[in-house]
Amino acid sequence: MEVFLNLVISGIMVGSIYALVALGWVLIYKCSGVLNLAMGELTLIGAYVCLSLYTWFVRPIGQPTLAFLLALAGTLVIGACLGLLTERFFLRRMIGEPVLSVIMVTVGLSFFFKGVVEFIWGTDTRVFTPEVFSKKPIPLMGNIYLDSVYLWSFVASIILLIVFVSFFKYTRWGLAMQATADDEMAALSLGVSAKFVYALAWAIAFMAAGVGGTLLGNVNGINISVGYLGLLVLPAVVLGGLNSVPGAIVGGIIIGVLQNLADGYLSQFTPGGVKEVAPLAFMVILLLFKPYGLWGWERIERV
């Protein structure tokens, strides 16, 4: 039982990171119908940018926590800028082209970004030095322990999730994004700038992915494989329903828990890799029963 609870709780913590990245992914899909296959590389870029900023800041500031927070804020800013630039230079000219071509552009972008990352930062695994979070586990109750890395990652993702979701729900531009997702033509007729909406979606995706990559990098160290996060996001969003924001969040958390459970209970029977396969297998099974995912848009039909 304790093992189970331990697995579930740390699963939820990691899952919240997935949820954050999934949220960014869903925003792009909702607004422009584009499956962003470069999401993993966005997390990679975010992670490395944050690492560089952190190593820069930590010496003059001296206090790891403060330096990390600053680095995180810097990652958000740089992420937003990169998102706007990406949209401006690579995706703006694809407006009006078939969605498939745009998806192919994101494939190209993923290779491009990966190349840039390897070019700048190399391929060795890097870790945050000095460590930001102590490795000492925090006792929750009884024999259940939690690494502080996980706890703080969880807190950070939840805060950002709340910020993004309330932006989406309550601000003028958030509303405009939802409107564009629903009916682009009608939104255009009301003076909503589709270009700006797309740019905004990419900026938010970059920010969410960047922070997600950073948090995950704190857990495992950063190398090219952080980018596989992008692959994990896919079952998370499919699970939640491709265009549902709450769905992406719940989906991310479910995938986190599932991965942990599979790792804890099944990996002893296999040569390895259950952790990676389990979410995708679960996705396939779920799709058999709920083809729209948990909260996906079914078309509203009036009778």
Partner: peptide, 18 residues
């Protein structure tokens, strides 16, 4: 062409976007 997944009031508020 209403924004189907928004409420009626949210629809109106998008109208006031500018």
């Amino acid at each position: 062409r209403v924004f189907e997944h928004l409420t009626l009031e949210e629809n109106l508020r998008v109208g006031g976007h500018l």
